[in-house]
Nucleic acid binder design. Structure first.
Lengths: 228, 228
DNA sequence: GCAATAATAATAGTAATACTATTAATTGTA
DNA sequence: TACAATTAATAGTATTACTATTATTATTGC
C-alpha cells in the first residue's frame, strides 16, 4: 500500500484555493505545517500570520494560495476525505462477500490513523486528529449552502455515497441508508473525541475500539449476524 | 405542561456567568436576544457590540454578565440541555414499560421544537435551531478539558447519563450503552442539520422523521422489537 | 426623603485579527 | 541576459475582543 500511496495525488476542487499548493514547495509547506499548527493551537487561534512566521514565510504569501483560513480548512478536510475514500476503495476492492465489504468499510472508517504513512508533505496521523476536532467547523457556518453549491463538500459527499452503496448491497431492504451512512461517518469522529475528552460519555477505551461498537450497531440494525 | 414549565427555573453552573442573567431585565434581555442574533448571523460573526446595539444597551454592560461570547454559548447550551432533561423526565415519568420509556425518550430527544412554549424570555424553537448548528463549537475547543473540570458540561453529561439508564433498563445486556446514548443525542442534531443543508446525506425529509430512523436503530441494536 | 450602593451607560483605549495594496527582491526559463 | 512569475517586506485598514475609567441612573436601607 505504501508504494501505491506514493502515486496517489489528491484532486481538490479548485474553488478551495487561489493557487494550487501542490505546485510549489511553499504551497506544500503551507499545507504540511498548517496541519501541525492547527493541531497545536486549535483552529480558532490559528492565523496566517502565525503560520507565516512558523514556515519562515510571509503572511501575504499564504493569502496567494488560500483566500482565508476557512478555505484552508476546507482544503485540508477535502484532502482527508479523499485519502479516506482511497483507503476505503482499496481495502474493499477484492472482497466478494457484501458483508465482508461492509465489515471492512466500517473498520477503515473508524480505525485510528496509527502512523504517518509518510508519502507526502501531509502527516495523516495529525490530520486525522484535526479532523476529529475541527471538521464540524468546516460546514457549521452561515456560508454552507453557498459553498455546498460550489462543490466544496463534494469529496465528502462522494465518500458518504460510497458507504451508502456498501450498506445497501449488504442489506437491500434497509430503508434509512443515507442516515445510517452519514451518522456512522460523523459518529466515528465524535466517539474518538469523547474518548479523549469525555471518557464517561463513551464505551470506547483502551480495550474497546469504536469499530466494535459501530460494527455491532450496523450489523444488528441491518439484521445481519456479525459472526462473532 | 405549559403551566408546569412556567415554574421551571433552569439552574446553570455559576462559572458560566459573572452575574446571573436571570436576576435582571437586562440579563434576561441579553439571553433572549443573543439567541435570536446568533441564529441570524451565526456564532462566528456574533459580537457583544452587535448584541449591545440590538438591545439598546452597551457592549461593556454585557461583559458584566458574561466573560466572553464563548461562555455565553456555554450558558445557552446548558440552558437547552437542562430544558431537554426536564422534558425527558416529565414525559417518561408515569410509564411503566421500559421499552415504552425508551421509545418516548427517543421521541423527546429527536423531535423538532415546534413552537415557542413562551414561558420565559427564551424562544425554545430558535434555541433549538442554534443548538443544531452551534452546539459542537461549545466543546470543540482547546479549553475543553479545563472547562469540563470546572463543570461547564455537567448538565449535558447528566442528560446523557439519564438516557444511558433508560437504554440499560430496556436491555440490561447491551455492552455499549454510553456510546449509543451519546451517539443518538449528537446524531439527532446532525441529522437535523443534514436535512436542512445536505438533504442527499440523510433519509429524513418531510415524510420521514429523524425519530423513526433512531427508533429503528436503537431497538434493533438492542434486539428489541419495535411493535410496528 | 436622602444617602449609600449597585447597576448601567458612555467613552476611550489596546492588542490582535483578518485582511488589502504596493513595492522590492528573488528565482526560473526562453 | 532579460523578462515573467513568484515571493517577501512593509504598510495600512476596519473590526474584534476585550479592559479601564468615569458618569449617570436605579434601588434599597434607614
Amino acid at each position: 500500500m505504501q508504494s501505491l500511496l506514493r502515486n496517489f495525488k489528491v484532486v481538490i476542487h479548485e474553488s478551495l484555493y487561489l493557487k494550487d499548493p501542490e505546485t510549489s514547495d511553499l504551497g506544500k509547506n503551507i499545507v504540511g505545517e498548517s496541519i501541525l499548527l492547527i493541531d497545536e493551537i486549535g483552529f480558532e487561534k490559528f492565523t496566517f500570520k502565525k503560520l507565516g512566521s512558523r514556515i519562515g514565510s510571509n503572511e501575504s504569501s499564504i493569502y496567494r494560495y488560500f483566500e482565508n483560513k476557512h478555505k484552508l480548512l476546507l482544503y485540508l478536510t477535502s484532502w482527508y476525505w479523499a485519502w479516506m475514500e482511497y483507503k476505503l476503495v482499496f481495502r474493499t476492492a477484492n472482497l466478494n462477500d457484501t458483508q465482508e465489504v461492509l465489515r471492512t468499510a466500517i473498520e477503515v472508517l473508524s480505525e485510528e490513523t496509527k502512523q504517518d504513512s509518510d508519502f507526502s508533505h501531509v502527516n495523516e496521523k495529525i490530520l486525522n486528529a484535526i479532523i476529529i476536532s475541527e471538521f464540524s467547523k468546516s460546514y457549521l457556518t452561515k456560508e454552507v449552502d453557498k459553498e455546498n453549491k460550489e462543490g466544496c463538500f463534494s469529496i465528502y459527499k462522494r465518500l458518504v455515497g460510497r458507504f451508502e452503496n456498501i450498506i445497501q448491497n449488504a442489506q437491500p431492504n434497509y430503508p434509512y441508508v443515507e442516515s445510517l451512512a452519514s451518522m456512522v461517518i460523523e459518529g466515528v469522529l465524535h466517539q474518538h473525541y469523547l474518548k479523549q475528552h469525555f471518557p464517561s460519555l463513551t464505551s470506547c477505551d483502551e480495550t474497546t475500539m469504536p469499530h466494535e461498537f459501530f460494527t455491532h450497531l450496523v450489523f444488528s440494525t441491518l439484521n445481519l449476524s456479525t459472526h462473532e
